[in-house]
Write a protein that binds this DNA or RNA. Structure first.
Lengths: 249, 249
DNA sequence: CTTGACCCTGACGCAGCGTCAGGCCACATC
DNA sequence: GATGTGGCCTGACGCTGCGTCAGGGTCAAG
């Protein structure tokens, strides 16, 4: 096979193959009389491994060293690539989950601490963070579902979501200001509306899950601050109302 | 604050701050008499945002535009970031699938043929043209819908989708080879199946939209080449069948 | 007043290619 | 056999996001 065909098959440019040849990463095993590069089947196999390692973010130099190590054979490479890919995918998924959380937080008017964002991208143990995230958010299904839904929301959808959230909060604040106890049926009804808002817009939120969220509203400073900015003690009030609503169900 | 302090605080090099100054990404709001860069609190705030966006993989140019354009808000960026992450995850998953197949093939002593390569890395990979697709169709409802659906597809789903597409193409090719005219009911029926395949798997595709797609199948070389590789004239044939089907509806 | 740790502005280098430029091959068509 | 047309070749320069000197001014302490 000549460069053009190989490039098309591999989804890279001819220039890229030239470059890989020049740096000794993938040197075609033959040339035609006219000097055309001729790629043999073995070259294509190496090409596939180059592509995979490159996809994984290795530098060309690293890839070359990996593939030129005579102690490691093709099958070893493939197995290693499988592991690396699995790690990488898991890591990206945890990043995606974080971004989703940022989107949710944003839609409620809360800015995520950039510090927190950076934690994920730093050189920390990815599994550790994934566990922590799962601990905080309880259910991975909720993530997946939330992401699936919100990723198709238009700007207008987001405005609606925000308006709904606003409305619920306003009603909570009003109930608090007129002195209704948090377990009053009128207030737990607002909590129920809140739960259904989440279920409709983000993910199926059971009363138990909702109670979990409520805990976070007081435990997480940012959420607490968000509510308390509207009215002093609102975070605790919402928490109590949600708990009362969950108990009633 | 001067460069050294800011660099230490932010965990970047002084050279990096120089660079960001030079390209207008983060220009300190003051200079001392001696020409030393003087960073104000507002500069540090901007720095935080730069760091965050940079971690998220935006180019410096993009970051500058994001921060300097008051019309776009952070929510948009986060959502865009969600999409990019979903794309990358999907891509890595398909690479992982290929590697797994390569392992199986290897352990059975079978060589992997170049066609397999193309499936993942080449022009038949469904995620490969994601960037271009966004550029061309990013604003359309169809794109948004398609992305929302496909982002939740598993590896197995993709295999099904591909098999369905394969089947439709095979039937078209067969109809062509036995000499059926493109507007024969048996052929427009295949076109209809094709349309419903798209509607089920990607986005609601009206007959009109389908006709538009058909135009592209002959106009866009890559699509044309894709069909014509299976059988000479197939792109045009599919185009005609789809048009006839659209007219009949 | 010196010393050493800062700061400044160029300027070059690096990866991993994209993108011409200039020229040779291959195959089809007139 | 001439003439396209398109693919191949080898340079060579450009780009991003800085690292890394080089040559020189500045500041606070001793």
């Amino acid at each position: 096979m000549n460069v053009g065909q190989v490039a098309a098959a591999a989804g890279v440019s001819v220039r890229t193959l030239h470059h890989w040849d020049a740096v000794g990463l993938l040197v075609p095993s033959g040339r035609t009389a006219a000097g055309y590069r001729a790629y043999a089947p073995a070259d294509l196999e190496r090409l596939q491994q180059v592509l995979t390692y490159r996809e994984l973010g290795f530098s060309l130099d690293d890839v070359r060293r990996l593939l030129d190590d005579p102690a490691v054979d093709a099958l070893d490479h493939l197995r290693r690539q499988q592991e690396l890919l699995a790690d990488r995918i898991a890591r990206l998924q945890s990043v995606a989950a974080l971004v989703s959380r940022a989107v949710e937080a944003r839609s409620m008017g809360i800015e995520l601490d950039p510090h927190e964002l950076r934690e994920v991208f730093g050189d920390e143990d990815p599994t550790q963070h994934a566990e922590e995230a799962r601990e905080r958010w309880g259910d991975t299904d909720a993530y997946v579902q939330s992401h699936a839904r919100t990723s198709s929301y238009s700007k207008a959808d987001w405005l609606e979501v925000k308006a709904e959230g606003e409305d619920v909060e306003r009603r909570f604040a009003e109930a608090l200001s007129v002195g209704l106890p948090a377990d009053d049926p009128a207030v737990t009804a607002i909590a129920e509306d809140h739960r259904q808002h989440i279920s409709r817009r983000f993910y199926d939120c059971s009363p138990q899950m909702h109670a979990c969220l409520a805990d976070m509203y007081v435990a997480d400073e940012r959420f607490a601050a968000h509510y308390d900015r509207r009215a002093a003690g609102l975070a605790q009030y919402v928490h109590d109302a949600v708990k009362a609503n969950a108990d009633a169900r």
